[in-house]
Design a binder for these strands. Structure first.
Lengths: 248, 248
DNA sequence: CGCGATTTGTGCACGCCTTCACAAGCGCTT
DNA sequence: AAGCGCTTGTGAAGGCGTGCACAAATCGCG
């Protein structure tokens, strides 16, 4: 999103390029495949067909094959994909073979929950530092970590090898925190605050806005309601004036 | 995602189509525009140019103009867009003029935070019911609501006019909850559980997986690290046995 | 060893989305 | 009233992503 070019004219010899040029859409699906693969692995599967994995990940099998083909050839025709091999390969590509230390800033409602979210640890991410601007929060222990003041952020990032920052502050504070993270050398930010962050080129920001998701659902609800009420016409539902109560 | 066709050959007379055929990409950005507009409105702006609004929403101005043009012509050449008018129009399209009642299922770490997330209420969404399968949770009061057992879900959905269900349960329970929501008549689901939900056609599911976002960031970290270390070649960083502790 | 069943990897076409560039339209000034 | 500057709305082009359909490759069996 803030990144424009992921070019990498990988012209290295040897069989497998270390860093193929993956389409963004593919990258976004790899974690989904990975989860499905772990699930299959736990169920005792050694190999899986594109059809089977696609079903488990909720995508089209052709899309899955094309996605995986971008990583290289890790399947066997007539057989399928080696589950373990594929897991290793995707984890390598995603950089999950090395543990990523995460700093979480903002310990309100949401931040508190994120600090204890089991889904992070189980996938190689470790939240190693908590920060808040509120002095009442500082010093509290949350899920085994002590909340520190946001002023210590810069030092902690360097000292503790933090590579990803998570912002769960109110929107007014978010840009400031982002600036501090960037200054400290963090180049990946996950932003839960409903606001636009501006960061220098080379820094990746991903945004999760819970309310936006609801609004998109609301749109579809609205659309569906208007369609069922009056297929192909003007909405019934609640439209100020106009058109009172359609047939049936 | 689970929806394939949003067709609506709107052939109604009169000036403005009530439900233009909006591209999904546009819909996803409308909430962002809306937030920026509210911000501008509070700052006292009456009109705003596409350039200005685009900057506030973090997008390209041409894209913004094209998005808005899909809603109809609500701008004035040479002047810009009327902030209030545009807010009303987007809110209407998104169906935010009517309050949406939301049920939240699963009150672990994340669910607890969602129940108290201020960002929902401030945008027209009201969480009106909480459910959990755990009898220890049932009966607790969280942010003014009493947690009910998930078995009461069906009745509550009907009685309280719930149109959107939010799933924040462990992944193993998610499909079951989704089934119950669908049976009760809910057609929009926001899923925080890291798993694939299968639902009948006509039901919209949006998924938010916090760990996936981190994994995508991790990929870019990995990529950036390998590029700075060895531009265009095989990664240094950690390549099997790797070097321990770089620099410093 | 050969054949058929199975499954991957991919060329190709199509559609969606983005971006550019500019004509059309509006208001202000002279 | 006419001209000028500014901004919207949109036609066209290009790029990206998806999905089909099939050739290539592998395994198992007779």
């Amino acid at each position: 999103m803030s990144q424009q070019r992921h070019g990498n004219t990988s012209g290295n010899a040897g069989g497998v390029p270390a860093f193929p040029d993956l389409p963004e859409a593919t990258i976004a699906r790899l974690p989904e495949y990975l989860r499905a693969l772990h699930h299959l692995s736990e169920a005792g599967a050694d190999t899986v067909s594109s059809e089977g994995l696609a079903a488990a990940a909720g995508v089209n099998s052709a899309k899955l094959r094309k996605d995986l083909s971008h990583l290289g050839s890790y399947g066997t025709r007539g057989v399928g994909y080696d589950v373990t091999l594929l897991i290793d390969q995707i984890e390598y590509i995603l950089g999950l073979d090395q543990r990523r230390n995460v700093a979480l800033v903002g310990l309100g409602n949401l931040g508190h929950a994120l600090a204890g979210y089991a889904g992070f640890a189980s996938r190689g991410f470790r939240i190693v530092a908590l920060f808040d601007a509120d002095h009442d929060q500082v010093g509290k222990r949350i899920h085994g970590l002590t909340v520190r003041h946001v002023g210590e952020l810069g030092r902690a990032v360097v000292d503790e090898g933090i590579t990803i920052g998570v912002i769960a502050t109110p929107p007014t504070a978010a840009q400031g925190v982002a600036d501090e993270l960037v200054t400290a050398g963090v180049t990946s930010i996950l932003n839960f605050a409903p606001c636009v962050l501006s960061v220098p080129a080379g820094v990746d920001v991903r945004k999760v806005d819970l309310a936006i998701e609801l609004q998109i659902l609301s749109f579809h609800e609205h659309r569906k309601a208007s369609l069922t009420a009056l297929p192909g016409g003007r909405t019934a539902e609640e439209d100020g004036e106009n058109q009172e109560a359609v047939g049936s």
